[in-house]
């Protein structure tokens, strides 16, 4: 029970990171982006490329920070991957979504995102192949916190949780303490008025994509660090990340964070009552349960 709760929190941290970007995008551009979770894959693979590069070029970086399996090379690669994924998100928006936004209704965007997801996923397969890859062959060993009840925790997962919380805090500070944060919130509240007040819409949208892309890259890399890396990361995270966003309420960063933890914990606890075969349906059941009680999500404003 406590173990399941703990596992849920740790899985939830990654889902939360992914959901923050999605909630901003969905709120700002008003479409459900089915290609969004592919950003996690782009980030994780970008990190893989640079990790391999750095550990070959600078072997010193290949030392793991005990007790983590994280190496200096990977930490550095993750930062680069965050930047690159942020930029790719902007490029994808520029190539596809911006054009469709200009001429067709918002729902065409949703469908275009299906197409984009298909393209990204299969380009990744073409380049990297189907098989699973790992940053480190080392198996991360769990530390025993308590014997009765048995509670285990892996250092890597604690690191993931801490880093996720740090990134969330950083975002919180940006949103609440900077001019950019005000501009961003103003656009989200009322784009027309914000533009009258001198906020450049295109810049803000690009900034949101960069935030979304880099947080997704972090989520993807951290996921691959604690699990494995394969081209199916996108579809795997699609439903959990959407569930977290909807549960939290679209547009609410704090809602997305909480939503991620709720989805993670509920999926963990669900195995206590449901056979594990039903695991894929869990995020959906959570979405449905929340929407029935609060159609706008936990923290969302009523948009109807």
């Amino acid at each position: 029970m406590i173990q399941s709760l703990l596992d849920g929190i740790l899985t939830g941290a990654i889902i939360s990171l992914g959901a923050i970007g999605l909630t901003l995008i969905m709120h700002m551009l008003r479409f459900a982006n089915f290609a969004y979770s592919e950003l996690l894959a782009i980030g994780a693979y970008a990190a893989l490329v640079f990790d391999r590069l750095f550990s070959t070029l600078v072997p010193v970086l290949d030392e793991a920070f005990a007790p983590l399996t994280l190496t200096g090379a990977l930490a550095l690669s993750m930062v680069i991957a965050m930047v690159l994924t942020g930029l790719s998100a902007v490029v994808i928006d520029w190539l596809v979504f911006r054009r469709i936004r200009q001429k067709a209704d918002p729902l065409s965007m949703v469908f275009a995102s299906f197409g984009v997801a298909l393209i990204i996923r299969n380009v990744i397969v073409l380049i990297f192949g189907h098989h699973a890859q790992l940053y480190s062959q080392e198996i991360a060993r769990a530390t025993i916190l308590s014997f009765d009840p048995l509670i285990l925790i892996k250092p890597d997962q604690v690191f993931v949780l801490v880093l996720a919380l740090v990134l969330m805090l950083a975002l919180h500070l940006v949103l609440t303490r900077t001019t950019f944060g005000f501009a961003l919130r103003a656009v989200a509240e009322n784009p027309a008025l914000a533009q009258v007040a001198g906020v450049r819409l295109t810049t803000v949208i690009a900034a949101v994509w960069i935030i979304a892309g880099s947080l997704s890259a972090a989520a993807g890399t951290l996921y691959a660090l604690t699990n494995q890396l394969n081209p199916m990361i996108g579809p795997v995270f699609l439903l959990p990340v959407f569930a977290a966003t909807i549960v939290g309420g679209i547009g609410s960063v704090y809602g997305a964070v909480l939503g991620g933890f709720i989805v993670g914990i509920a999926s963990g606890l669900a195995l206590l009552v449901l056979p594990s075969g039903y695991a894929p349906a869990m995020p959906f059941l959570i979405i449905l349960a929340v929407l029935l009680v609060r159609p706008q999500g936990l923290f969302g404003e009523d948009q109807r």
């Binding site: 596992d7 899985t11 996921y223 963990g268 594990s276 695991a279 894929p280």
Partner: peptide
């Protein structure tokens, strides 16, 4: 199941 984010809950 195929394609789950994590099999930690099952391992637990």
């Amino acid at each position: 199941n195929d394609a789950q984010p994590s099999y930690r809950a099952e391992a637990t």
